[in-house]
Amino acid sequence: CAPLSPQIRHSGAAQQRQQAAAFELEGRLSASDGERAASGRMEWLHSPTRDSWTLLNPLGQIAAQLEQDASGAELVTADGRRYRAGSADSLLPQLLGVEVPVARLAQWVQAAPRREAEIRETDGSGRPTLLIDAGWRIAYLEYADNGINAAPRLMDISRGDTRLRLFIDRWTPTP
């Protein structure tokens, strides 16, 4: 992978990174809440009004699909069961095995956090390598390339026993 520019640990000059309002993401993840562990592939279509996740098991079968729009969220699992909720936040644990705030996740996967988040460390190009946001710790281990606006490629999201590691194979902003 593209070697990161030299790791200069400073929390200053975090370059302002643009945040795409809508994107398509394909990646692999593993998630653990300290007891159970799940791993697989994820496809995520995000826009301000709609989110749709598809989780596939390591052998390529769809394990679950979660859709969210203004009217609420619905999760359908491989065995055909349906779950509804006001928002995807409460259904995400059944999809990913861990509870992660969805709206924040859309910012974290772009390493473009909201202002209140604390960028604790950055790399040589001023990109975040460690972010603290509402008690969550997001470590950016790799970026797709050395460009200032490169998308993160490998990241660890954790809080307490909850851990999610995501390798982003493809990330594309959509109009």
């Binding site: 562990a37 791993s39 490998l154």
Partner: peptide, 22 residues
């Protein structure tokens, strides 16, 4: 990605994630 069933446990090793799920 490597999946190994040893008769008792299923190991899933993903090189990029540098992680093993068992």
């Amino acid at each position: 990605q490597l999946l190994v069933g040893d008769g008792e446990r299923l190991w899933i090793w993903d090189r990029d994630l540098n992680q093993v799920t068992v």
